[in-house]
């Protein structure tokens, strides 16, 4: 099925994507810290601070608690990082088609997104600390809470594309090729904006950032899930946090703002690739600023029961309204450009 040249291509691109994901992920964490610091009237650390932190964590002692289950405890951080990088292989980067784009669609990405969280849960339970156990329970509850609105977003967008007669609406290739906004009419655009709002709210929960950081909650659980992690293991989780940030922003970019610079302005081929990459990075930073940095400086932490009600009731409702608007939009004649 897969030829040897294709296998070599996939392996090579996996290596490139890994390096790219880690570097850009850490860079995003640095940008986030700097932006948040400026909004709080602080100077903040230099943007390369996450790289320094990572290097420091690597030379620190890797403590494994006595009552931990060592193999799960050590495996969880590696699995978490690996699974977050795998998601990147399915997401378009700028104008570059995803290396594994032909083998999986948005549904697969949704499934893959749960793996880093599950790894953290497993690692938390395996560390044998009451703080980590409480954190792990909270992480599971949070996951159950945000999966529902996230599913609504994915299904709604794909369904609208399908209604417009587009082939394979779930593949990221078609979603990027036919942006929702160009397919939908005015009602659909309002619906799309509501879905964008839901996506922006799911992002901090997926990344366990304030206000949905109950599973780590520094002042309550002293780091919760990660309380027993140190040294190399913590560095792996730190990297996967960076990669996850990139993944979440890249999904939002792919679904909602997929345009490339090269499709708007004509550029020479070599320049276009670089310009598209930079443009993509800009979009990712924009998404991260609005859904992570801005939210986390403007809000207090929720209690875990509030997290559930926020996602199931309010955001679930907003998502369903968005879905209904998209349906109404498709049902109305001559609403879409392509329909």
């Amino acid at each position: 099925m897969i030829g040897s040249w294709e296998l070599a291509f996939i392996v090579l691109s996996a290596i490139i994507v890994t390096i790219y994901g880690i570097v850009v992920g850490l860079f995003l964490l640095g940008v986030d810290r700097k932006l948040a610091a400026h909004m709080q009237a602080r100077v903040g650390p230099p943007i390369r601070q996450p790289f320094i932190d990572f290097r420091k964590l690597l030379i620190k002692e890797n403590v494994i608690p006595e009552n931990a289950i060592p193999w799960i405890f050590n495996l969880a951080p590696v699995m978490s990082l690996a699974s977050s990088i795998v998601i990147l292989l399915y997401l378009p980067i700028g104008s570059i088609y995803p290396p594994l784009g032909a083998y999986g669609d948005l549904i697969l990405v949704m499934y893959l997104l749960t793996i880093p969280a599950l790894c953290m849960v497993a690692g938390g339970f395996a560390s044998g600390s009451p703080y980590a156990s409480v954190g792990a329970q909270r992480e599971m509850v949070t996951m159950i809470a945000y999966e529902f609105p996230l599913a609504i977003v994915v299904v709604a967008v794909a369904w609208r594309l399908a209604a417009a007669g587009i082939q394979d609406p779930f593949t990221l290739g078609s979603i990027a090729a036919y942006p929702l906004w160009s397919v939908a009419g005015p009602l659909g655009i309002i619906g799309g904006l509501l879905l964008l709002l839901v996506m922006a709210a799911v992002t901090p929960a997926e990344l366990s950032r304030i206000p949905f950081d109950t599973q780590e909650a520094e002042t309550e659980l002293a780091g919760g899930l990660l309380v027993e992690y140190s040294g190399k293991n913590l560095a792996m989780f730190y990297l996967s946090q960076g990669v996850k940030t990139l993944v979440m922003a890249a999904i939002a970019v792919a679904v909602f703002i997929p345009w490339n610079l090269s499709s708007i302005v004509t550029l020479p081929e070599g320049v276009a690739l670089v310009a598209d990459l930079l443009f993509f990075l800009g979009k990712v930073i924009l998404v991260m600023f609005f859904s992570v940095s801005l939210v986390r400086v403007a809000m207090a932490r929720f209690q875990i029961n509030r997290v559930v009600s926020v996602f199931w009731m309010y955001l679930g409702l907003i998502g369903l309204v968005g879905l209904l608007l998209l349906m109404a939009d498709a049902a109305l004649p001559a609403a879409g450009v392509l329909a």
Partner: peptide, 9 residues
């Protein structure tokens, strides 16, 4: 409460 902006202000 996890509201660090207010702490800094």
């Amino acid at each position: 409460l996890g509201f660090d902006s207010l702490l800094h202000l």
